[in-house]
Design a protein around this nucleic acid. Structure first.
Lengths: 336, 336
DNA sequence: GTGAAAGCGCTAACAA
DNA sequence: TTGTTAGCGCTTTCAC
């Protein structure tokens, strides 16, 4: 079943069928109808390889998913799914690349014209893949913001503003000493952009408001969380506000605080940076800045499509954070 | 940069370059060297679309990942990653399809020759996609086993044997009444194969050994787990052995048991069906049947490759479960 | 062991 | 508004 079969069936030329399908030139309504009917009757589906060869477009984009220590898989998958969904909305499929494939993988899928463009998740401040991406003739979009963005296209939640918003919220509630329970140490060690920017915003806001702040990197294991919380509240008994930027640590953190005989939010206020579903499933529901995975993924795809259409999108797109007050943050308790 | 450029540079014909690359006919060592050198020097990468068009092989397989309620994402991703890794080992890439694309997606990627074959995860007992898969001329492999496997190729852990192994292990330790804390209700409602088979094996083994058994579907939320455990041990005080087949419920379950004043394994023995990493991270480490995601994913890929090579692989491949005793299951306590 | 050449099925430039 | 046709870059038959 080829395009010429459809053409014969509809009594037109192959190019007309092609143009009906691509919409790249105007077709009389009557012809268009006949062609579409023939396609339908014959069940025609164009050959992807032939298309890619002739048009120099594969209609596939590559997505590099992060699978390294410290990455919270469900959140990563939310991004991936929203990329796939948005790509499908725009007639593109998604080729899955793992981190492990490294830069060779990027060169391979671009060099063989398997894909039209590349989306890279979990970008580090000084990401080793960036020189490779720059060297490719294929467009790419980064989810995450590296140190040097010249000539790149990046999109992410504005984590600095998110860190600020959390600190500001606690400050406004009267807290005078606050702490950030962060990502696992490995995430900071490899200098992942989002983690670093959150810390920076949190510290800056606290500093500007003249309140005390501390940052505690934290592994996800419940015992590690308990140790971190216990250590923190032991060393800094004045801390009454906690920001948690570590999805799997959220529940253990609440447990640990209670295990110390403190109530949330009566004794300790907690603000999370996490997807809405994890913030609303706890008890009490958490005041949180949501992680808009769907929006970020969708935006990454539109930015990539813009580049494919030779529009010059902005280098950095930061989505503003939205802090939703729920039940886990309240005014600082009166001093004992 | 095309194959003819390489041919010219190496002083051979394009077909020779092609044959060097494919290994489909013998080439003199000297020629082969020259060609490979030229490829290297010129940095030649064959055009994937042209290849697919001429050879009728895209060297891409589609993977349908499950993203529905009750699915534990990290486990699903372990499968996906092992599929990608194994596929890459065999010169194939992976196109990511979401459940949401449904059967139309399967028809699309097959009909347009985007992919050479399809792997479908999380197959239900009476899966709606099976008729579509059967109708395609492309080979496919199912991860999971439906009711009717005629003409299909399926691979999975032998969950029935896993359920049996857990029951047998507890029985051998002297437990006379045991219970299975299972997947969320929705998973059973849509009749997911692996969940159903585990229950069947668990029940059958307990019955054959003449011991009491109960099955409690269970949502992952800690409160739901606590309710399930409390309800169960309340209604059936004789239960001294628990099998848990629900990854995110593992930690909350241990908490809940302890919350009831029972020790693991002194009062209550626990056996998990879970990936090794979740079984070893708890305290105490869990006696468990491991979920060999890597092996299943890898096997799915080899089965698909076998079908592409026209070997006729078996319809059903069940990997034998391996129960590893750790510290969470012990002899039944003496009666009070 | 190697080469020549005919497609694979589509798109898009050119022509009408 | 539509048709004709020359490729796109590779694989593979056929021929030597």
């Amino acid at each position: 079943m080829r395009i010429s079969d459809v053409a014969r069936h509809a009594g037109v030329s192959p190019s007309t069928v092609s143009y009906v399908l691509s919409g790249k030139r105007s077709i009389s309504p009557a012809t268009r109808r006949r062609v579409l009917d023939s396609i339908d009757v014959l069940g025609y589906q164009p050959h992807a390889g032939a298309r890619a060869l002739a048009s120099n477009r594969s209609n596939v984009i590559a997505l590099v998913v992060p699978l390294r220590p410290g990455i919270h898989v469900p959140v990563a998958m939310q991004f991936a799914v929203s990329v796939v969904t948005s790509a499908r909305d725009r007639e593109h499929d998604v080729l899955l690349l793992t981190q492990a494939e490294g830069e060779g993988g990027l060169r391979r899928v671009a060099g063989t014209s398997m894909v039209d463009g590349i989306i890279v998740m979990d970008v580090e401040v000084d990401d080793a893949r960036i020189p490779t991406l720059r060297s490719l003739s294929h467009p790419s979009v980064l989810i995450g913001v590296p140190a040097e963005t010249e000539g790149l296209t990046c999109v992410d939640l504005d984590f600095e503003a998110a860190g600020r918003a959390c600190a500001a919220h606690l400050a406004a509630l009267g807290h005078r000493e606050i702490a950030l329970i962060g990502q696992p140490p490995s995430v900071y060690e490899r200098r992942t952009g989002f983690a670093e920017r959150t810390v920076a915003g949190f510290r800056a806001e606290a500093h500007e408001r003249g309140i005390g702040s501390a940052v505690v990197p934290c592994d996800a294991a419940p015992t590690a969380v308990a140790a971190a919380v216990t250590g923190l509240l032991g060393e800094r008994p004045g801390v009454t506000g906690l920001v948690v930027h570590n999805e799997p640590a959220v529940a253990p953190l609440l447990d640990a605080v209670r295990g110390l005989g403190r109530e949330v939010p009566a004794d300790i206020s907690v603000v999370a940076i996490a997807p809405d579903d994890v913030a609303t499933e706890t008890s009490p529901p958490l005041t949180s800045v949501s992680l808009p995975a769907e929006e970020v993924g969708g935006r990454a795809v539109s930015l990539l499509m813009d580049k494919l259409d030779d529009l010059g999108p902005p280098e950095v797109t930061l989505l503003p954070p939205r802090l939703v007050p729920r039940a886990s943050a309240a005014a600082r308790p009166a001093l004992p």
